[in-house]
Design a protein around this nucleic acid. Structure first.
Lengths: 226, 226
DNA sequence: TCCATAATTCGGTTGACGCCGAACCATAGC
DNA sequence: GCTATGGTTCGGCGTCAACCGAATTATGGA
């Protein structure tokens, strides 16, 4: 009633089913057009437009005009993190959707979280990088070591180009399915890009699930073990 | 529309202003009665009762019957963490309440977050414990070292009694004002208990602000420096 | 036993918001 | 220029949920 940020305002933004569906869809990390989001949410284009306006005002999504298309994406990693956090709560409260098909285990194994890898494999990546001394964590801050930089450069990631200062290089993000952290931030995103680029894995259409090829998964595991 | 936890359900629970006020009040960590929460939210007892029922169904609050009073508290640390996360977003989106009085700096300096210390001092505690080797962090898991256990025992905390397995001993919690982590979990709660017990600080009535005495703050700082 | 206080349940009102269709603006391509 | 398509704005409809007062059920104390 008195102090602190106005939490109800943005929670109610997320609290509408149509908007929540849109945000969930955007958790895939891709920018989507208004009509795609409308179909994702199951509402008409007019309704979707209204919702997207509100999400924009609330600072939850960003717009990117491109010709006559308007591409929407999450406003930033903090938004994605909050959404994951909410998913964790919902999961815990047993409020999973009825439609929990056989795809669910795959979702737990590997999925895309905004713009980086999550699920079992994402957590594994993060933890082995810590254990092998490529990353260090202190005070909630995650940083690359010299060793880690070397290894990523060898993996084909151009770190100098990444470190624009606009976005934190490394960040830990709590995983709703595994309940441990995985690697987010610019480096997390770059790794996911590279994994796709090498053909090790790709996203399943219209889903957050990441499918590794047999060979890709083996190579990924090798990369972890180094 | 299809997969994952039902995020809209619980977000809409938090999204109602009256309920959000109640939850914010419970972030103080104390259990409050239904009437106290009603006045906190500015609604009638009847309305509050309805809200509390919903919050209970949604798994966000726990009830504790004591005589003819029913004490409500947050269902767990995950709930508190999610709320802080939402506050961070709201803060970032500039959606702070109009009523940002002079009390705000005090809130940033030291406050109680559910059942442990937050704000500048909370973050400082966490970071010096990491830096001095009392804590280690790995894969999002925070653990006490032998050194850390010694120091806490010397501080007057009975760790054996704390480690019931029911609750994680250490956990990092993202701070919405400082945007870095502070120490939560059973140990975080115990430290806050002990700080109060030693008379170093106490909560301001009906607020999350923690007021350190001059002497108490000095002693706290000494404790950090060891 | 009886009264005061905490809390929930019920009925009815009201306002807010999500929804759509249709009309309207903008861009791209011919 | 014209036309197709993406997107927003407007008006009106319907529903849902928050709200309160009053009645009802517990509990504790005199």
């Amino acid at each position: 009633m008195k102090d602190g940020p106005d939490i109800a305002r943005i929670a109610s933004l997320i609290g509408d089913p149509a908007r929540a569906n849109m945000l969930s869809a955007l958790m895939g990390g891709q920018a989507l057009t208004a009509t795609e989001l409308a179909s994702e949410a199951g509402v008409s284009a007019a309704t979707a437009s209204g919702h997207l306006g509100k999400l924009g005002d609330g600072g939850l999504v960003r717009v990117n005009q491109q010709g006559r298309h308007r591409y929407f994406s999450l406003a930033g990693p903090e938004v994605a993190q909050t959404l994951e956090s909410l998913m964790g709560l919902a999961q815990h409260a047993g409020a999973v959707r009825v439609r929990t098909g056989p795809r669910d285990p795959a979702l737990r194994r590997a999925r895309v979280c905004y713009d980086h890898l999550a699920g079992d494999l994402g957590v594994q990546l993060y933890e082995t990088m810590l254990a092998s001394g490529g990353l260090t964590e202190s005070g909630g801050e995650v940083t690359l070591t010299a060793l880690g930089r070397d290894r990523l450069t060898g993996f084909g990631i151009d770190l100098d180009n990444l470190d624009t200062g606009r976005r934190k290089l490394c960040r830990s993000c709590l995983d709703w399915s595994v309940r441990r952290s995985h690697l987010a931030g610019a480096v997390g995103a770059a790794i996911w890009q590279q994994v796709q680029h090498k053909g090790w894995a790709k996203r399943i259409e219209n889903s957050r699930i990441v499918a590794f090829s047999a060979r890709g998964e083996a190579e990924f595991m090798d990369f972890l073990r180094v």
